[in-house]
Simulated scan of single mutants.
Amino acid sequence: MLKNKLGLRYQGQLSAFEALSVAVRAEEPLPHGRFSAAHYCAVHRHLFQDVYGWAGRYRTVRMTKDRSPFCFPENIAGEMRALFARLRDADLLREREAKAFAEEAAAFLAYLNAIHPFREGNGRTQLTFTALLAAQAGHPLDLSRLEPASFLQAMIASFFGDEAPLRRHLWTLVGD
């Protein structure tokens, strides 16, 4: 059980509180920024501020999912700087056709997921930030088309090097 602001001790209660809190915060204006690692952390902090005291701060513990390790905590800051420097060098994916945007956004998202900088809330922060990135690049995502279960499977496939399903999902959400 993750340490949380309410001191909840049962996973079901924490999950329900987290879902409600994040949904409310997601409806508020999101933090503005320069699409940097600091901006990414600000988005996480905004979404999870009511739940976790550590919201917006990189994790300090090693994590795995289904025996697959995410980036070690001692490497997170450097990997995040490098990833967001590449995004900046790519002009935040601006001036691309929709399909090219989806391809490059999928690569960004796959790498970001492999870093997994936070203890909890990575997927929701990734999707929220990608929607912000897409909107500023002129390709707003239509999240009403999102199929959560298949999107999760595409994210898992991208973790193992197959970004094609994730590209297809993003292409569907861009829908130009």
Results as ranks from 00 to 15, higher is better:
23 A>Q: 13
137 A>K: 02
82 A>Y: 06
7 G>Q: 05
27 E>C: 14
158 S>N: 01
168 R>M: 03
170 L>G: 09
156 I>G: 05
40 Y>I: 07
112 L>A: 15
152 L>K: 10
122 N>K: 13
156 I>T: 03
152 L>Q: 15
46 H>F: 05
133 L>K: 12
120 E>S: 08
111 Y>I: 01
157 A>L: 02
173 L>N: 01
42 A>W: 04
134 A>L: 09
163 E>T: 12
47 L>P: 06
159 F>C: 02
156 I>M: 01
131 A>M: 04
11 Q>Y: 11
111 Y>H: 15
22 V>A: 12
157 A>E: 01
51 V>K: 01
153 Q>C: 04
87 L>T: 08
115 I>H: 05
142 D>Y: 03
36 S>W: 01
27 E>N: 11
59 R>G: 05
72 F>M: 11
52 Y>I: 03
135 A>R: 14
10 Y>F: 14
140 P>T: 04
4 N>T: 11
62 R>M: 11
164 A>K: 05
172 T>H: 07
132 L>A: 11
61 V>P: 05
98 A>V: 05
98 A>D: 11
82 A>M: 10
101 F>P: 00
6 L>P: 03
97 E>G: 14
157 A>K: 00
30 L>E: 09
56 G>T: 00
106 A>F: 11
15 S>A: 14
49 Q>N: 12
109 L>R: 13
30 L>M: 14
77 A>W: 04
23 A>R: 15
142 D>P: 00
17 F>L: 13
87 L>W: 04
172 T>E: 13
96 R>W: 09
31 P>W: 00
160 F>P: 02
138 G>D: 01
52 Y>N: 11
136 Q>A: 01
67 R>L: 10
124 R>F: 09
15 S>M: 13
1 M>T: 11
8 L>A: 14
116 H>K: 08
170 L>R: 00
39 H>F: 04
167 R>N: 03
134 A>I: 08
81 R>I: 00
42 A>C: 00
80 M>E: 03
80 M>Q: 07
57 R>W: 06
117 P>C: 10
45 R>M: 03
50 D>P: 02
68 S>K: 08
109 L>Y: 15
23 A>Y: 10
72 F>S: 15
5 K>I: 13
103 E>S: 09
19 A>I: 08
73 P>C: 06
151 F>W: 05
71 C>N: 07
138 G>N: 02
130 T>M: 06
96 R>Q: 14
59 R>P: 12
21 S>K: 11
71 C>V: 04
80 M>L: 14
32 H>D: 14
13 Q>N: 13
135 A>N: 04
86 R>E: 15
135 A>G: 06
19 A>G: 13
13 Q>V: 10
